[in-house]
Amino acid sequence: MRPLHHPRTDELDLVTVLHALADPVRLAITTALADGAEHACGGFDFGITKASLSHHFRVLRECGVTTTRQDGKHRLISLRASDLQHRFPGMLDAVLASAVTSERA
Rank of each mutant, 00 (worst) to 15 (best):
G72E: 03
H6D: 03
H19M: 14
R87L: 06
A37P: 01
G72H: 09
L27D: 01
F88M: 00
R26L: 08
M1L: 14
P3K: 15
V59N: 00
L96K: 10
A40G: 13
V100G: 01
H74W: 12
R61F: 06
H6V: 13
T30A: 15
R61P: 00
K50D: 10
A32P: 06
D71A: 07
G64M: 06
A97Q: 07
R8G: 01
R80H: 05
A34P: 01
V17C: 05
S98I: 03
D45S: 14
M1W: 07
S102M: 11
T9M: 13
G47E: 01
C63H: 02
L84D: 05
G72V: 07
C41N: 00
A105W: 11
F46P: 03
L79K: 07
H19L: 15
K73C: 04
L60K: 08
S52Y: 03
V95E: 03
R2Y: 12
T16D: 04
A20E: 04
G43A: 13
G72T: 02
G42D: 05
A20I: 09
T9L: 14
V15L: 14
A81K: 09
L21H: 01
R61V: 06
A81Q: 12
I48V: 13
T68Y: 04
V25K: 10
D23R: 15
R69K: 12
M1D: 03
A32G: 08
L84G: 06
L12F: 15
Q85K: 10
A34N: 10
R58K: 09
R87F: 08
K73M: 08
R2K: 15
L27M: 15
A105K: 14
A105M: 14
D71Q: 13
L4A: 04
V100P: 00
G64L: 11
H5C: 06
H86Q: 08
L60H: 03
D45E: 10
D13T: 06
H74R: 15
A94E: 11
H39Y: 11
E62V: 09
L84H: 09
V25I: 15
M91V: 10
A51Y: 13
E103Q: 15
R87Q: 11
H74V: 08
